[in-house]
Simulated assay, not measured.
Amino acid sequence: MAKPIAGPEIERLIQLLAKLPGLGPRSARRATLHLVKRKEQLLGPLSEAMGRARDSVLVCSNCGNIDTRDPCTICADAARDQSTVVVVEDVSDLWALERAKALNAAYHVLGGVLSPLEGVGPEDLTIRRLVERVAEGGITEIIIAVNATVEGQTTAHYVIDQLAGFDIKVTRLAHGVPVGGELDYLDEGTLSAAMRARTAF
């Protein structure tokens, strides 16, 4: 076991930062060093912002988004098309779609995907809440926007089965050649999906 290189407070900060996605021990040490060198400009404000976030962040009881209000800003936005609901795996997917400004719709965050190997079943996701939202009325289209993984597609099929009794349109994101993509660099699955989802020119 490596000996600590700094006091327990700094070591604790390194350990916590190393748990963040994309940060390993080395990156966490560099980030910690950067923060402590700039205590007044970064560490203090960051600590205050994290404390405020801890005390004020909520999970929207309607869609599962993360916000400081419940219902969240998106669910409470009267200018949004609440009749169209985009179903995503995680909040990060919701944020990505929002950054793209792809659609002025509502969302539903599943909280993951079905994965029997990892012990994730339907009861661990918010599929029941999605069915309840549809049953409440007012929703005319569900857009399944999950990742094109085996687990994602399994989850999509399960969600579609749960919505089978409702008079709504269920669509999914197109899969295929990305904008700016070159055919020679794409995998066979992507090319096959693109060919099946071809559209009129």
Score class of each variant (00 low, 15 high):
70 D>P: 07
163 L>A: 04
152 G>D: 11
133 R>W: 08
51 G>S: 13
39 K>I: 14
186 L>N: 11
52 R>T: 10
91 V>A: 10
27 S>H: 02
86 V>Q: 03
188 E>C: 12
42 L>Q: 13
65 N>G: 11
198 R>P: 09
16 L>K: 02
193 A>D: 12
199 T>K: 15
186 L>C: 14
55 D>P: 01
123 E>R: 13
188 E>R: 03
108 H>W: 04
181 G>T: 04
53 A>W: 01
132 E>A: 13
74 I>M: 09
14 I>P: 08
129 R>F: 08
148 A>R: 01
175 H>A: 15
114 L>C: 06
151 E>N: 12
160 I>N: 02
29 R>T: 14
154 T>G: 14
25 P>Q: 13
123 E>P: 04
183 L>V: 14
113 V>D: 09
33 L>Q: 03
180 G>Q: 05
164 A>Y: 00
151 E>Y: 00
135 A>K: 04
162 Q>F: 03
138 G>A: 11
81 D>L: 09
119 G>Y: 01
4 P>W: 01
196 R>K: 10
88 V>P: 10
121 G>P: 08
116 P>T: 08
163 L>K: 00
72 C>V: 03
168 I>Y: 00
135 A>S: 10
46 L>F: 05
120 V>P: 03
117 L>H: 01
162 Q>M: 15
52 R>L: 15
41 Q>N: 11
167 D>L: 12
10 I>F: 07
50 M>T: 05
20 L>V: 07
49 A>N: 06
162 Q>T: 09
92 S>V: 11
2 A>K: 07
169 K>H: 09
167 D>P: 07
152 G>P: 06
104 N>L: 13
97 L>S: 05
77 D>K: 01
95 W>D: 11
43 L>D: 06
178 P>K: 05
50 M>D: 10
128 R>L: 13
138 G>V: 09
11 E>I: 12
197 A>T: 04
168 I>W: 01
61 S>K: 06
18 A>F: 03
173 L>M: 12
197 A>D: 15
1 M>T: 05
33 L>E: 08
201 F>K: 08
48 E>V: 14
159 V>N: 06
151 E>L: 08
195 M>N: 05
85 V>M: 07
62 N>T: 12
188 E>Q: 14
1 M>Y: 03
118 E>M: 12
92 S>P: 05
103 L>E: 06
122 P>E: 11
176 G>P: 11
90 D>G: 06
81 D>T: 04
42 L>P: 05
121 G>N: 11
179 V>K: 03
174 A>P: 06
174 A>F: 02
142 I>K: 01
103 L>G: 02
25 P>C: 14
109 V>Q: 06
57 V>W: 00
164 A>Q: 06
57 V>C: 05
121 G>F: 04
195 M>H: 02
144 I>H: 02
29 R>A: 15
65 N>V: 06
92 S>I: 13
13 L>D: 08
22 G>M: 10
113 V>F: 02
93 D>C: 14
131 V>E: 12
133 R>V: 12
148 A>S: 12
126 T>K: 15
136 E>Q: 11
84 T>F: 05
61 S>M: 07
66 I>Y: 03
45 P>H: 04
173 L>E: 09
26 R>S: 14
54 R>I: 11
97 L>F: 07
